[in-house]
Design a protein around this nucleic acid. Structure first.
Lengths: 121, 121
DNA sequence: TAAATACTGAACCATATGGTTCAGCATCTC
DNA sequence: GAGATGCTGAACCATATGGTTCAGTATTTA
């Protein structure tokens, strides 16, 4: 279960680590699109775009459906909820860590003052 | 400026896309650590761990300082604020997109009801 | 000063990534 | 049915990734 989550994190963050793919997600947020649409908009070959869509699909961020000869891409069920939560947890950790550091610095400063000038170089 | 931000996104999300690196960040949230510390905890060679730390450092998530023979790693100034914001924006987009879809579905359902049974196969 | 510790760099390896071209194969459209 | 359209798969390419080993160098420590 945990491994499963971790694998999902790997896939989702990796999917987001490319500027084209982030662009595709934003685009699909505005309207569904075919592979051709996306390839044109991002100025690359169909094959190249299909690979990006594949990565996004693998991560659950996009779903596609082929009807006739055109494959339509739309946003998938993955809403990045866990990913957002992970980052939020990290941010709290970060803050706690630096509050702690502030305390240490403050403590040192306090001691410095208490012990006076004799410590100065 | 935008390119700069995009490059940062690339680096940050890529850094987060590995389970070991996410673990290192969580670890450093608890306490600073040397390369040796981290390598032991994550059961890999010093060289391997150093590469991971390098990636995290590149992304600004970690800073390191070598004093004597030990290099200490701690959390860097990057707090993933923009990344969190990006994801939140995406989530709102996602919801808007699906609300819209709901409206369409609702609309269809309404029409279906209005036009009655004659349409049914 | 010798041995242990901590890191570093180069070299290597397998696999992944981000792209391309080219040759299909369906499916529309005329 | 012929041609245009849209996608697909294989093959290729350069570079990156996630690891390793091995041979150092620098710094403690005994």
């Amino acid at each position: 279960m945990v491994q499963h989550l971790q694998a999902h994190f790997d896939a989702a963050f990796a999917a987001l680590s490319d500027v084209t793919r982030r662009g595709v997600l934003e685009q699909l947020g505005r309207a569904d699109a075919s592979i051709t649409n996306l390839a044109e908009r991002f100025e690359m070959t169909l094959t190249g775009m299909k690979k990006h869509v594949g990565v996004l699909e693998q991560a659950g961020l996009v779903v596609t459906e082929k009807v006739g000869r055109v494959r339509t891409c739309r946003l998938g069920r993955c809403r990045l909820a866990e990913e957002a939560a992970w980052i939020e947890r990290y941010r709290r950790l970060w803050e706690a860590r630096f509050d702690e550091l502030d305390t240490v610095v403050e403590e040192l400063t306090r001691k410095e003052k208490a012990h006076g000038r004799k410590r100065r170089q």
